[in-house]
Nucleic acid binder design. Structure first.
Lengths: 175, 175
DNA sequence: TTTAAAGTAGACCACTCTGTCTACCTACAT
DNA sequence: ATGTAGGTAGACAGAGTGGTCTACTTTAAA
């Protein structure tokens, strides 16, 4: 992984996440990153290809963070508590690696691309399934219903925190 | 409200909802609706203005439907049951007035526009608050926590049904 | 010192987009 | 009958898009 490639991914991810992938043009990415357009197209076949790379990058960072936050949780109660404690930190911008909270990058991107680019929406779905699988690993012996409930509640919290600018919503599930 | 104006709103809403507002151009709207471009700009100041009109239209239709579905619910249990029964019908495309399920129009649109157009995101937030207020009216005497829980769970269900193409998710909260 | 790989700057192409404008066409009330 | 309001068709401007290409520069290994 070259220096320039990483530089492009970092810059693009930041812009895509804060403004929405559709609102950010290639020219903005190259001028912000200071990398030439030719170099961008040497590493990425298209803008969509770059978006996919950003989704993968975000997925890796997000999963690493969430894995860490859920460490040690081994039943419904502890998983539930640690999950919403983690979300609360995220919503209140206390997790530097996730950048300033602007909702879920995958939900936002999937909403923009709908079925225009199936690869992108498929990757967004993949991410959500991975999160769900991680939760399932911690809910040892928990029912499928419990998993569905905790996952869906966290999805709703992310969306609500973003749309209603209610960054303290996760707290209401901690009591 | 003129004939042509309604025609434009209906056509635009359908296209915006199924493809995403950003993916639909003015030219597609006029050619699909059979209304001249000049007429469109006689009724709407800009594309964003038309999007706002579509959000308002969708809000009216959606609230009328939800109001109806929640009729008679007067405690936590009945509200919860009627809400998720309604969502299940929506997800499985059994509500003609809401058109084929493609997630929440307001969440999708807010995700696309982020802060690029504050009027649009503000209206999307307004819609969610109205839904929440409606639920609150049915949860007579219910705690704020119960309201937050049921609202957030339904938001999560809408997002999950769309992203994971899991149209039966609402059923798992009925048992 | 030479050579090749990797990068830069930015002109350029073909296309799309929103929004404006001209020219013409009804329908109908006065 | 004529004027007016409301409509159509579509050319057009101006800005912006993703992506390609040429020409030049830097870097570093052989």
């Amino acid at each position: 992984m070259t220096d320039k490639k990483q530089q492009l991914i970092q810059t693009a991810l930041h812009l895509f996440y804060t403004k929405g992938a559709g609102q950010v043009g290639i020219n903005e990415i190259i001028s912000t990153s200071g990398v030439a357009k030719k170099t961008l197209y040497a590493y990425f076949a298209s803008k969509d290809d770059l978006i996919l790379a950003c989704l993968r990058e975000r997925h890796d960072v997000f999963m690493a963070w969430l894995c860490d936050e859920l460490e040690g949780a081994n039943d419904i109660k502890s998983t539930y508590f640690q999950l919403f404690s983690a979300l609360d930190k995220w919503f209140n911008c206390k997790v530097p690696s996730l950048a300033q909270f602007r909702g879920c990058f995958f939900i936002n991107t999937a909403a923009e691309f709908q079925e225009y680019n199936p690869d992108i929406t498929a990757y967004c779905a993949y991410h959500k399934n991975q999160v769900k699988a991680l939760l399932n690993r911690h809910l040892q012996g928990g029912s499928q219903q419990e998993l569905e409930r905790i996952f869906t509640l966290s999805e709703g919290a992310i969306v609500s925190a973003f749309m209603l600018k209610n960054s303290d919503i996760a707290k209401s599930f901690l009591r």
